[in-house]
Design a protein around this nucleic acid. Structure first.
Lengths: 184, 184, 184, 184
DNA sequence: TATGAATGAGTGTTCATTCAT
DNA sequence: GATGAATGAACACTCATTCAT
């Protein structure tokens, strides 16, 4: 693939994430093309169906997330890192969901998405384990439960905007629930 | 309004809830009309835009929820009632969201929806308060937090199917978080 | 179906035959709509896919042909009627083929087309039999052979326009071949 | 023109005949390029419009046909050679028509096609004349009538598949018609 | 009032053609 | 000269909305 084609592909993916985040997955491919500064034909050359476009935009999004997560993981106090990561994932999730939902509703995520999701999962697992090793986070939950709960928090924000202090308290409830040790 | 008009209006609303629950809000108005056994013109006479149709279907849905909540509230042990209510809301949430999301994405919910949501809120508040009065539920959360968290749980299930035991543990974390008393 | 809908349906079919005869089956549905004086949506309401439009235009065309054939059959000398019918079919065939070819290339003719073609076949069989009863037309050919040869003559005209006297002589060869009795 | 350019031109023409024969003239230029193992740009360098590509593919096809006809003409009994030639032309005609039809529908064949067609015509005329000299083929038909009839037979087979015996009898009728002498 | 036919802008997608590499 | 990426007009088809019956 030529250098300019690579650049265009990248621009289309960036534009797609923006547009889908702002307008949802029903946004027109033409709008994505306009935002990327290319013709619609170019979008379709790189991503022959809208599904392909959504899927690859999702992959790009997940890869960004994984990279940010790795940065978070590397420095802080493990429990604090977990908190930061949860917040970050919650913040990005509405965009992620806008892209993932139509895929799920139509034959499920593809291979590329699953692979990218797995890359995210690996980092989250690492952060979680290190937090659990401090003894300040209960050990009977794993990455799946984290993902599940974070997803929930995230999606809840998609539903009517929520007052910041409400969200903060809700997250506290969640984090309190995560702390040691499960009481009956 | 004539009696048959009233009946038609009701049938359209019931059909709309069914159709939107099954196919999402992108379902065509014609499908709603077909399901209701009326012509599309009749649907548009009662609800001049698709937005109106979605909004009133949502109101009907919320009113059903409020009624069910009132029934739940009246009998059981208050903490058990809270648990039941959470489960019920979680079960209904996907349908609710299917209708609410496009409204939120386009100028927000209207007055009628807010009023209906408020009626739900009143019942949930009552159940929560009685649960808190038992001392077995932390007092620093209110209806908003409950709604927020429940919504999250509900929506999280819409996102990739989740293994039952994962969900169970996640709900336990949430409920643990809700119990007295916030630590640290 | 309402009276105006019936009228529109008829106008669309007439327009479709004209347009497909002039421009071939690749003519756009929008052109058909324009010619019929309706919106594209109306065309698609009556004929949900282009295939449907082609198929029903073909049926209308075949029904016209059958009716004309019946008129031809009723009066003349049987052998002359056969000659007239062959000429008429040859003249109409290019239009017929324009519509039939894409259908054949994509899953074959549908039931309605087959039924209409059968109605034509019945009339042609009748004319042929009466011509054979005069003893002036060989008896070892049937409707299928007639159709096959006429189709050939017809399609040959679609390929480069042919000088009239060339066509006349070619048809004479064909008719000579049809006359009694097959030699060696 | 450089040697590799000449080679590419030839490969494109061969690929074009294959592709148009298989998929019809609506096949994309990109498919032709892929089959030829070159880029689309190369196809368009040699044949600036699709019309040019079709026209030159047709010329190549007709030149192949003329060569084959010359071989046929050289050996056999003249009447048998005519029969063989008719069969060969009928077999190739669908491919020829696939390329010729869109040209005819859009401004007619160009000069190069006419020249190539004339080269074919010369060979056919020769075969016909020698057959007529045997006295076993009527003298009032010329190459045009042969072409016309053969084209018809060929195209008729493109239209709904025909039972073999129907075709055989139809061809007999045609050949009977060609034999001496025209009866009234 | 109820109906469902008509409308036409909008969507995803294809493809001949152009042009930077 | 060769390449294949970019372009955008065109197409089949959908659907919210209007309006004649």
């Amino acid at each position: 693939m030529r250098a300019d084609a690579v650049a265009n592909r990248r621009r289309v993916l960036v534009a797609a994430q923006e547009v889908f985040a702002e307008q949802g997955a029903e946004a027109s491919t033409e709008e994505v093309a306009r935002r990327a500064g290319v013709g619609t034909g170019t979008v379709f050359r790189h991503f022959p169906t809208k599904r392909d476009l959504l899927e690859h935009a999702l992959v790009a999004h997940l890869d960004d997330l994984a990279e940010a997560a790795r940065a978070t993981a590397s420095g802080e106090d493990p429990v604090e890192a977990l908190r930061t990561l949860v917040a970050d994932m919650a913040g990005r999730a509405p965009t992620k969901l806008a892209m993932a939902e139509p895929l799920l509703a139509d034959d499920g995520l593809g291979e590329a998405s699953h692979a990218a999701a797995e890359r995210v999962r690996v980092v989250v697992a690492e952060v979680l384990e290190r937090a659990q090793e401090t003894g300040r986070v209960r050990r009977d939950v794993g990455v799946d439960e984290i993902h599940f709960l974070v997803r929930g928090i995230a999606q809840a924000q998609a539903f009517l905007p929520v007052a910041p202090e409400v969200r903060r308290r809700a997250v506290e409830v969640l984090l309190d629930g995560l702390r040691c040790a499960p009481r009956s």
